[in-house]
Design a protein around this nucleic acid. Structure first.
Lengths: 118, 118
DNA sequence: CTGGATCCGATTTGATACTG
DNA sequence: CAGTATCAAATCGGATCCAG
């Protein structure tokens, strides 16, 4: 007896629905970077460590389709595409900040040592 | 945000770390149900729709190992095992409530009807 | 520069059988 | 009652190639 369906997927509770919208490995890092500025595809690509081409494009597509970010295409050669955050996306930032701070809190409890990048 | 490692897995940010601790499809529903009462394995199994035996056991194991819940075994026949929330788990409930409310908010925006369960 | 499409291995999950 | 073990199915993600 499902709770509700969205996009051909069955959800059992609101938490699951929220996390499918802004969860996963990459959506929050993307939204976080767009929180106060407009960025082009390659800027995001360079700024988010380890994300692959495929994951960045698919995640951007989903975030756009669900109204968290806006995609502005400029008819120039070579192509120029700018991504910016929407009102809905800004609201999600509040939640992301809370989760992020909680993550930092947990990291302390777990005595996580940071590993330096090369 | 530098990378770090926990349990042989590389993390790129605190959000990802937090969601690996209490995220996924089932951990929040489990924690949520234990927020104000002690429950036995079969109680949880019956109360969480669609969760499989395997997923419930593995998720309970992980939550226990990471200190979010406590597992109390009684040496009786047939076996009796009670799960309860810990201090760390209680803290997570605050975060879960925020995400849950945000989920409800999003559901309204997406015109999804909430059913009476959960 | 941006991004779609495809192949394919890795990871996750479900179904089922078995146990003290 | 509360698990473990095992195998197969489904899903996910990375690498690669093609295109306007």
């Amino acid at each position: 007896m499902p709770d509700f369906i969205y996009n051909n997927k069955v959800y059992y509770n609101p938490v699951e629905f929220a996390m499918d919208r802004i969860g996963g490995t990459w959506k929050m890092p993307i939204l976080w970077r767009l929180r106060d500025r407009v960025m082009r595809y390659n800027e995001l690509k360079k700024d988010i460590p380890h994300i692959t081409h495929k994951m960045l494009t698919t995640q951007l597509r989903e975030l756009e389709e669900e109204g968290f970010i806006h995609r502005q295409v400029y008819a120039v050669v070579p192509p120029k595409v700018e991504y910016s955050i929407t009102q809905r996306g800004k609201r999600s930032i509040e939640i992301i900040e809370i989760i992020r701070n909680y993550g930092l809190e947990l990291m302390k409890e777990f005595n996580i040592e940071e590993k330096k990048r090369n």
